[in-house]
């Protein structure tokens, strides 16, 4: 083995040599893929109301909300399929990371701004996300994404 070997290769190699880890990795990848596909399909059923939900955050002009209401689920679908099939996995994982950042910023911004308008109007625009369960879920997602990224086959 060469002296200065990149850590990623070491992870990839150690996984390659142990079938159990390969299977585990596959399952995690498929799990995230299914999560994305589920999210995408449920939104693609009714883009019009999804557009309204985006608009309720008041972060985007209407046209942007409408465009996002078809584009975001389409992107999620592509990412999900990509992860499911194991093709263009690196690119898909990159999108996961990008989306993660954008959405958390949007959510926090909406939470903070939405409630500073004091007039009884939270309505259904922002549903409860709580902190504990999504926190665990997100940390797991982050960890899984990181694991998948660093253990990917550099094809």
């Amino acid at each position: 083995m060469e002296a200065a070997e990149p850590p990623m290769n070491a992870v990839t190699q150690s996984i390659g040599s142990r079938p159990i880890l390969r299977i585990g990795r596959l399952l995690l990848r498929v799990a995230i893929a299914l999560l994305f596909l589920f999210a995408a399909i449920t939104k693609l059923i009714d883009p019009s109301s999804f557009a309204q939900q985006i608009a309720n955050y008041q972060l985007t002009p209407w046209l942007a909300s409408a465009v996002l209401s078809v584009f975001l689920p389409a992107l999620e679908l592509c990412v999900g399929i990509s992860l499911l099939l194991g093709r263009w996995e690196s690119g898909a994982l990159l999108w996961v990371a990008i989306l993660l950042t954008i959405f958390s910023g949007a959510l926090l911004s909406a939470i903070v701004r939405g409630l500073s308008i004091d007039c009884g109007c939270f309505g259904r625009s922002i549903e409860n996300t709580g902190t504990l369960w999504p926190l665990i879920r997100n940390l797991v997602l982050l960890a899984v994404t990181g694991f998948l990224w660093f253990s990917r086959d550099k094809k």
């Binding site: 999210a39 449920t42 959405f103 949007a106 959510l107 996300t129 926190l135 879920r137 997100n138 940390l139």
Partner: peptide, 9 residues
Amino acid sequence: LLLSLFLAV
């Protein structure tokens, strides 16, 4: 659902 999935805490 999506937002809570992607909330980087």
